[in-house]
């Protein structure tokens, strides 16, 4: 029965090596949790605690490099991401306001209004998608502050906003400051 034992061992090894499913679950759990304190997945919380406090295992901390712009752009709870839905370009070769190499930024976007905890001001954020290569797959983040249903599209993050690019294939999302919101959305 050595052949059977051998097969079982190999299968187990394959199962152990094939951790993509688990990784995905972890990412999705984190994505839905976002910045909110909803106890969605124990897996997500366990991963977060084991990776030094970060939400995404194996993603190193970043700074935006902009004065008065607090937080980590590689984390879902970064203030600009209050209405983002997708993979963070900061984790994909881009930054919070630039696209990864080889992609194209969609000129048409949805808009969010996010509070900067540093200066207490609300900013208009443009969530331009980067497009043209397959999904980045890293740092999936879904936050929905002031997100409206699809029938009010300009503030809806379920729409594939790569519709303005030459390829509508979605890669990742940025969060670009357009300016201070004049009518502060509380």
């Amino acid at each position: 029965m050595k052949w059977l034992d051998k097969l079982t061992v190999n299968s187990s090894r394959r199962l152990a090596q094939n951790s993509s499913r688990r990784s995905f679950i972890t990412r999705f759990g984190t994505a839905l949790v976002g910045g909110a304190a909803i106890p969605l997945l124990p897996v997500a919380r366990a991963s977060a605690s084991s990776s030094g406090g970060g939400m995404y295992p194996g993603v190193a901390a970043q700074e935006s490099g902009v004065k008065g712009d607090p937080g980590d752009p590689s984390q879902c709870d970064y203030w600009r991401y209050c209405a983002i839905d997708g993979f963070l370009c900061s984790c994909c070769g881009g930054t919070q306001n630039s696209c990864p190499p080889g992609t194209e930024m969609s000129p048409i976007t949805w808009i969010g209004t996010c509070l900067n905890p540093e200066d207490g001001k609300s900013y208009i954020i443009s969530y331009n998608d980067c497009c043209g290569t397959s999904s980045c797959g890293r740092c999936l983040c879904n936050r929905n502050e002031r997100d409206t249903p699809i029938y009010r599209a300009q503030t809806n993050n379920d729409t594939n906003w790569c519709l303005g690019a030459s390829s509508t294939v979605y890669t990742c999302s940025t969060a670009i400051v357009l300016g201070v919101a004049t009518d502060s959305a509380s």
Binding site: L32, G34, A36, I38, N144, R146, D147
Partner: peptide
């Protein structure tokens, strides 16, 4: 879900 607020409408 309990303790809903702005932004929890897709949280499950």
């Amino acid at each position: 879900h309990k303790d809903g607020k702005d932004g929890t409408h897709k949280s499950g």
